[in-house]
Design a protein around this nucleic acid. Structure first.
Length: 647
RNA sequence: GCUCGCAUAGCUCAGGCGGUAGAGCACUUCAUUGGUAAUGAAGAGGUCCCCGGUUCAACUCCGGGUGUGAGCUCCA
């Protein structure tokens, strides 16, 4: 005699166990038709699920976020069915939901082509028209293995054999297609209204590069054609913010074949770069860092001692000269230890914070390179803090504070935090690891922000926190990091004299706020869609004359602003004002200063912002004041990307 | 590194089922001195990524390479 409580608090009594579908029917035929699944006591179930005791029940439809995800998950099954109709030899593997869509991995004798995708999509539409019922069933492991073996589905057999425990498994069948799946799923294949297959790519079985490569087909599914269209438009908009595209349009940098993965910075891009570096130099000085500089080329033996050669020799560029082997430095820490090792250090010298804008080269796999986000030549705002174990906690806390202040200045409010803890292969005692992991955890908890624990992914020498930002396509880009290192200082003989006169090995904290300048600038460009806030804009203002008559006055203004430290140019070409405004607006220059006879007479400039906002005429001094104030507030508040979104 | 796609003027892109190519913008010259997102006219500009092969003939077809895009793997 189940009593069902609906989300609005009302109760319904039923004489016997009742399915979610029947509950929906009892509420109304419209809801019954829209029902994709149910939520019983907070757990998602199929509409065919029978409720046999008192429970809170909600009907899940496409208006529910879970409903959309179920739709996407079922759409992956729909696609798998279509693939097997067209290509009976294709084997199914896994097909999960991802952000905005789904994918399914197939094992097939040849890769799928774009034409295949179109055919698969057509077959999917046909199956939707067939409106096949989706039936859930339970099978024992033995029966399931036998069935999939019989079907020639070797991967499914492997999946079942790798699932621990002995409980029965659930299956979903629609027409001739059956798949092992936890569910829930939509009640029938007629429920799909809008989907699209978006791309094919290779993907390793079980994510292991030693395994065979499968064919992964990506798709997206929505509650309506309109939602699908909006999604595709959103993608198009995001693509306009692509830093590679904007880098070209705004003349910031370029890449060319002769230097794969290495940027050529142009005047404007380099101005941006230098502005950021100058800012970081200042904030680090304020935090007690001492800036140093170390060689690009260092004898290979140092990398052997530090342990890097053993692990990364394939990814290091090397140079032979004078019968000596050098590596182009892939990181700065061994060099920083050399600086530390000069002269005898006392515990009184600790913590010693060394910083370097260190240029590094790494031979990244060709397929992993991506614009500025993943390059072979980059500069880190690198720093190494030499300290005692007791100082770890406060140093980590200070670093976190610095990092968040910097990110806020750049307009990043959303930072993804991950803690990677001890891996199986590691150095150092468990007590020291406990201490270091606790220090990092406490620093993370102190932020009050959510963070993710990634067990076993720490470096062999210590745990680490990674700070990531999202790019225009929602991909996660790791920028900042702090890592506790118990190993490298000892490996390179770093020591200090302790209070009791004994020699001790310092702990080293590797840390970077921005990480690679290249990657950070890539993310920054995408964050602002190229419309950099005034403090970062390579050109903060451009002065435009109406006719030749005002040229001299414009040049005087430009000179005066340059002397005040602003980045300003003058466009004195014989072009119409509308033409010039269009051009500099497209270049996303924050302020356009129009000067005609009126302005010359009154000593003013007519100020227009890049989004078209007209600030009217103001005296030249007032404008300089305005710009100073804008610069002073960095990327915060009114300069946030949402307030200053381009176009 | 792996899978699939792409590579044509400075940029963005057309094009031809094999007969050495085109637009818009940019550039140069001339005219125009015009008040808030494109003034007009003329001109110049290409080893159709590179190396092989097939062919009377290859930018086009085939093979290899390089770069690049999406994804996978990796990321000290």
């Amino acid at each position: 005699m189940p009593q069902i409580t609906l989300p609005d608090g009302s109760n319904r009594d039923f004489d016997s166990p009742i399915t979610v579908a029947a509950i929906a029917e009892s509420i109304g035929p419209g809801l019954a038709k829209a029902a994709l699944a149910g939520r019983v006591g907070g757990v998602l179930v199929d509409t065919s699920h029978a409720v046999d005791e008192d429970a809170e029940v909600a009907i899940v439809t496409e208006r529910d976020k879970d409903g959309i995800n179920i739709l996407r998950h079922s759409c992956a099954h729909l696609m798998a069915q279509a693939v097997q109709r067209l290509f009976p030899k294709a084997q199914v593997t896994i097909g999960p939901v991802i952000e905005d869509g789904f994918f399914y991995d197939f094992a097939f004798e040849r890769p799928f082509t774009p034409d295949d995708l179109a055919a698969i999509e057509k077959t999917m539409e046909a199956i939707v028209k067939e409106d096949l019922e989706v039936e859930r069933s339970i099978m024992s492991r033995a029966d399931a293995v036998a069935m999939f073996k019989d079907m020639g589905e070797a991967y499914k057999v492997e999946i079942i054999e790798s699932i621990p425990g002995n409980e029965d498994l659930s299956f979903y069948k629609q027409g001739e297609f059956i798949d092992l799946c936890r569910g829930p799923h939509v009640p029938s294949t007629g429920k799909f209204k809008a989907f699209k297959l978006t791309s094919v790519a290779g993907a390793y079985w079980r994510g292991d590069a030693d395994n065979e490569m499968l064919q992964r087909v990506y798709g997206t599914a929505w509650a309506s054609k309109k939602d699908l269209k909006l999604y595709l438009q959103r993608l198009e908009e995001a693509e306009k913010r692509d830093h590679r595209k904007l880098g070209k349009q705004l003349g910031l940098f370029h890449f060319q074949e002769e230097a794969p993965g290495m940027a050529f910075w142009h005047p404007r891009g380099w101005t941006l770069y230098q502005t950021i570096q100058g800012y970081m130099r200042k904030v680090q000085q304020d935090q007690g860092y001492l800036e140093i500089n170390t060689p690009q080329l260092v004898d290979y033996s140092l990398w052997e001692k530090s342990g890097h050669a053993a692990k990364f020799s394939e990814e290091m560029f090397s140079v032979e000269s004078d019968n000596r082997m050098y590596a182009i430095k892939p990181m700065n820490c061994p060099c920083h230890i050399q600086v530390f090792n000069q002269g005898l250090k006392s515990y009184r010298d600790l913590p010693l914070r060394l910083a370097e804008f260190g240029s590094c080269h790494r031979y990244e796999p060709s397929g992993s390179m991506h614009g500025l986000m993943r390059v072979r030549s980059f500069v880190q705002d690198d720093g190494h803090i030499f300290c005692t174990e007791q100082q770890i906690q406060s140093e980590v806390a200070d670093f976190m504070e610095l990092l968040f202040a910097v990110y806020r200045d750049f307009g990043f409010d959303e930072v993804i935090l991950c803690l990677s803890t001890r891996p199986e292969k590691r150095v150092g005692s468990d007590e020291i690891w406990d201490q270091a992991e606790t220090a990092l955890k406490e620093a993370l908890n102190a932020t009050g922000l959510p963070w993710e624990l990634v067990p076993g992914e720490g470096a062999f020498y210590g745990p680490k926190i990674e700070y990531s930002l999202k790019d225009c396509m929602g991909r996660i880009q790791q920028c900042g990091t702090i890592q506790v290192d118990f190993f490298t200082p000892g490996a390179l003989s770093a020591q200090y004299v302790a209070e009791d006169s004994s020699r001790k090995t310092p702990v080293m904290l590797h840390r970077a706020v921005l990480g690679s300048f290249e990657r950070f600038i890539g993310v920054l460009i995408e964050q602002f869609g190229g419309a950099m806030p005034a403090w970062l804009a390579p050109e903060q203002a451009v002065i435009l004359n109406i006719t030749d008559k005002q040229s001299e006055y414009c040049q005087k203004l430009q000179e005066s602003m340059k002397n005040k430290g602003f980045r300003v140019s003058a466009d004195l070409r014989n072009e119409k004002i509308g033409f010039k405004i269009r051009e500099h607006t497209l270049q996303k220059i924050p302020y356009l200063l129009v000067v005609g006879d009126k302005e010359v007479e009154s000593g003013t400039v007519a100020v227009r912002k890049r989004r078209g906002e007209d600030l009217g005429a103001m005296t030249f001094d007032d404008f300089c004041m305005h710009l100073s104030q804008d610069v002073a507030q960095f990327g915060r508040s009114e300069n946030s990307p949402s307030a200053e979104h381009p176009d």
